[in-house]
Amino acid sequence: MLLRNGIPLRFIFRQIRLELLLVTLFVVIIGVIDENKFLNLAIPATVPTILGTAISLLLAFRTNQGYQRWWEARIVWGAIVNDSRTLIRQLLAFTHDHGDYLPDLYRRVAHRQIAFCYALGNSLRGMDTLPAIGGLIDTEERSLLRRHDNVPNALLQLHGDDLAELLRREWVNPYQQVQLDDTLRRLCDSMGKCERIKNTVFPSAYNIIIVLFIYLFVFSLPFALVESFGLGQIPIVIVVAAAFFLIEKSAIYLQDPFENRPTDTPMTAIARTIDINLRQMIGEGEVPEKLPAEGFYLM
């Protein structure tokens, strides 16, 4: 996630450097041809005006749709934070008077839930999930997870096994077990929503149409300005092109919030917050520090 301050210009313009290079070469060629009166290149300003208006509407829709996907991802991860805390709070409240077995149970479930958050973030980014878990789960559970393609889902299944054991020992009653299971259901729903956002590709035909229209607009703009501005049209066209290309790139990054880029939903930072909270809830003395920002962004 990009932070409010300190975003370097080189990061912003690196995303569109090839497009700007192509546009710069084109407008310089048009300017030189017109300056030397080789050809009459002027066209009515109506043509780029109509194109620019149409593109503005398309980009507004595209940016809005991209932001909705990014914001939905952030809402889902907010729900994961809440449900992770709720799971441990329910476990502590429902089972606090049932003997020496409980501290180990609290630690196992809390660590497994922390592992779920780290593993889900890595899975959505297409990274290996098991290294992210570290020493949060024991050897037996780690061996079981290696047999699953979806590690976060397997971790929720292990949660379910522990809840079933609590009910069997009558350490929770059926009503409490239903509430605990409902918390697991919400966590599973959140995982599914993230996977839907990740796997639902924005229509490629729509992307191609927008990019094509932007290039048509940018390449027609010098012909409309060259008669009035001469070589002065070069910086004007470059600035206008940069604005359109930046908006289009921003929309692309917003619509894909799980791609291991600085514009991502900050899943690792959120998982670290959950890590800290759950360890403190079960009374662990040592907790990790909050994840620091990597310059101008937080992962």
Rank of each mutant, 00 (worst) to 15 (best):
I75D: 15
I75Q: 14
V76G: 12
V76K: 15
W77F: 05
G78F: 12
A79N: 13
A79T: 03
I80E: 03
I80M: 14
V81I: 09
V81P: 00
N82V: 02
N82F: 09
N82A: 10
D83Y: 15
D83W: 14
D83F: 15
S84F: 13
S84R: 12
T86D: 09
T86I: 11
T86L: 13
L87M: 05
L87T: 07
I88W: 02
I88V: 12
I88L: 11
I88Y: 01
R89S: 12
Q90N: 09
L91M: 04
L92W: 02
L92F: 06
A93G: 14
H96T: 09
H96K: 13
D97H: 06
D97G: 00
D97R: 01
H98A: 04
D100F: 15
D100A: 15
Y101R: 08
L102Q: 11
L102D: 03
P103G: 15
D104G: 00
D104H: 06
D104W: 06
D104K: 10
L105Q: 06
L105K: 05
L105R: 03
R108D: 14
V109E: 03
V109L: 11
A110S: 12
A110H: 01
A110E: 09
H111Q: 11
Q113H: 01
Q113T: 02
I114G: 02
I114Q: 03
A115E: 08
F116M: 08
F116L: 10
C117R: 06
L120D: 10
L120Y: 09
G121V: 10
G121P: 00
N122I: 01
S123K: 14
L124F: 04
L124A: 08
L124G: 03
L124K: 01
G126S: 04
G126I: 03
M127A: 08
D128Y: 05
D128I: 00
T129I: 01
L130K: 05
P131F: 08
A132H: 11
I133S: 13
G135H: 11
G135R: 10
G135D: 07
I137Q: 12
I137H: 10
T139A: 14
T139Y: 11
R142N: 02
S143V: 00
L144N: 08
L145E: 10
L145Y: 05
R147Q: 14
H148K: 11
D149H: 06
N150V: 07
N150S: 12
V151H: 08
V151L: 02
V151C: 05
P152W: 06
N153P: 04
N153K: 14
A154Q: 15
Q157F: 15
Q157M: 15
Q157T: 08
L158D: 06
L158H: 13
H159D: 05
D161E: 13
D161Q: 14
D162I: 06
A164F: 10
E165V: 05
L166F: 04
L166G: 00
L167V: 07
R169G: 07
E170A: 08
E170L: 04
W171Y: 12
N173T: 04
P174S: 02
Y175V: 14
